[in-house]
Write a protein that binds this DNA or RNA. Structure first.
Lengths: 351, 351
DNA sequence: CTTAGCACTCTTTATGCTCGTCTGCTAAAT
DNA sequence: ATTTAGCAGACGAGCATAAAGAGTGCTAAG
């Protein structure tokens, strides 16, 4: 059934007001700040029918109204005001991404951090599936005496690099040759493929067997380590929210954040593109009530992963959406071969 | 004035009991669990004099006794039982360090994380002073088309590496030559020296001017970024502690953790070696009461930084000391040219 | 010096009470 | 038919009071 315009206005008033104050909204509040032309009695009548319709709740008889998840859903879909980032918010984002960021892990951490800082909620970021990353390039560089660095470049960015011990007397040339050999063998394959297949498929010669094995090892442990690893930043920010004024509630929420097996289903979204807003998702099981807003991160058009916020159902969706939209754009602009606007890049003069 | 053996036993009983339960300790408790041979009245007499001496406190007249900071200090110095890590605790530590860890930042994060996991408090780790790190080696590696990776190896380990954009047509040889030239110029100098000095000192020829400038830039921004940066892991663990059952207290503590300017003086310890236990340090100013235990991390005998825990004054010092001692040893064993016992390293066969 | 016993202090918990807020309903007004 | 004013009723927040329980301090005896 369609809602009258007035009913929608009242829902918006309740949600806006409740987001701001976290206190049940009375008919007088609505009259004063949102609909001065109506009497409180009329508003009360509307409130009563909206409650019957499932949009509002009443903690007890003599209390104001509180929005239900249904009301929030309608709000984000239709009623929410558009909002632009303020100057200072833009500055915060720029500050975080004004550096040279290489590793995927760093991108995730920075993203989660900046989101948390602006929204005052917990920022989350994660890679959808490392196994799907396509290897572009593998470099092995000798560092000091007996250690070497393995750098694996994928379409998602530079994977965390790993050192390995090597015999002192191996020459630079060997590493160079090994690098280009391995690059030739792996390039174009996904990490998943490389992990699963054995040396025969890649036609590895005896000479580079050892390097091959080592790199497979590194990839395998990387895949295991990062499987569904979610980066969380600013979880303590949740304490600022009045819904967690009770330490028990706060603990329950932290438990959810710390348990990856419970958290992941809550985060997952159907759509692989754009923003996803999940309000009180069923997947959360007996975990505490929460809402999750995520944006899809891309790099050169490739889906890297997701970033967003998690927090109580009462959150400033309007602000969060504008932040995430901006971050989505910014992160997509970061990449190994980017052309960023500002002086973020210093071209190195050729020889 | 010297304490009688019995007084010490009673202090130990109070501290042990209070660490365990976080509840004021009554004379009956002490009799039952620690000194059954004495009567509660005798114990009460002792408790009264210990309170006068400043070792104990009484929340109110009809409550049991609570140890003062003085009592904790005596406890860690003299009364604390020795404790070995349990099998499962050892396993946790091994799990964290069983990987190839390259970057300093990763060492810090892992260390803080494992400490937090075992102690159920907030783990901290930080580098004493990046500017004092001595550069060993600088490598510039071309990755894909127009991006290159700069790897700076110091005596502390591999610094976070940074990418830079380069013209497409630069050849590998140029990077190789630039790497060895820059290594020749910087090797043996500290990061601080390199940041402060200009090109003349390093006799940079025109040819490598651009690389030189870029690397200086990277180092400078690194030094600024990491100045006094403290890695914190598991801050939400603090909520498990009953002293933060009140959200206000918890928030105050989180504020301390988030403010580097307030946190650093609390962490700093006089001694540059071994374990430091600071109980209710004066430096904390008007920040909430806390205790900090830190160990010095070394790498090839070089002082890297500190790692430890921060939490309420009531913490299981005995356990923490044993954990930190073990971690101190383990981390010192990690290094680019290490000879670790187990199969953590796979030697790569020569050519 | 140690101990038993008892009075005393102070917190904790439960109970009852008042006050203010906000609603729901009814009847009148538009 | 909708809106509004007015009023009774419901409920929580806050406060005082009372009773119960825990643990001490003190005194006097062992």
């Amino acid at each position: 059934m369609a809602l009258s315009e007035r009913k929608e206005k009242i829902i918006k008033a309740v949600v806006d007001s409740y987001i701001d104050s976290c206190e049940p909204v009375s008919s007088a509040d609505i009259k004063e700040y949102h609909l001065p032309s109506l009497s409180t009695a009329t508003i009360r009548n509307e409130l009563a029918t909206l409650e019957e319709m499932g949009y509002l709740d009443q903690p007890h008889t003599s209390a104001g109204r509180v929005p239900t998840a249904e009301a929030y859903k309608l709000y984000v879909e239709k009623l929410m005001p558009e909002r632009k980032l303020t100057k200072s918010e833009l500055d915060i984002v720029r500050k975080y991404f004004d550096h040279k960021i290489t590793e995927i892990g760093d991108v995730l951490r920075s993203t989660a951090k900046v989101i948390s800082e602006i929204t005052n909620l917990t920022g989350i970021a994660y890679i959808s599936d490392v196994r799907r990353a396509v290897i572009d390039n593998v470099k092995i560089v000798k560092l000091t005496g007996n250690s070497a660095l393995v750098i694996i470049v994928t379409n998602l960015g530079v994977l965390k690099d790993a050192t390995l011990s090597v015999a002192e007397d191996i020459k630079d040339e060997y590493f160079r040759a090994a690098s280009s050999f391995i690059t030739g063998a792996f390039s174009g394959h996904t990490i998943g493929e490389v992990c699963d297949c054995d040396e025969l498929v890649f036609k590895i010669t005896e000479e580079y067997k050892a390097v091959f094995d080592t790199i497979i090892e590194i990839l395998k442990s990387y895949v295991i380590d990062e499987r569904g690893k979610v980066v969380l930043e600013g979880s303590s920010k949740l304490l600022e929210q009045p819904e967690y004024a009770d330490v028990g509630k706060a603990k329950a929420m932290f438990r959810l954040l710390e348990s990856e097996s419970e958290l992941l289903p809550v985060l997952e979204s159907r759509d692989d593109i754009g923003l996803s807003i999940k309000i009180a998702p069923e997947e959360s099981g007996n975990a505490p009530e929460c809402a999750v807003v995520t944006a899809t991160l891309t790099n050169n058009g490739v889906n890297i992963g997701k970033a967003g916020v998690i927090g109580p159902i009462r959150m400033d969706y309007s602000k969060i959406v504008s932040v995430l939209e901006y971050i989505e754009k910014t992160v997509s602009g970061l990449s190994t071969n980017d052309k960023r606007e500002k002086n973020n890049d210093k071209e190195m003069a050729g020889e």
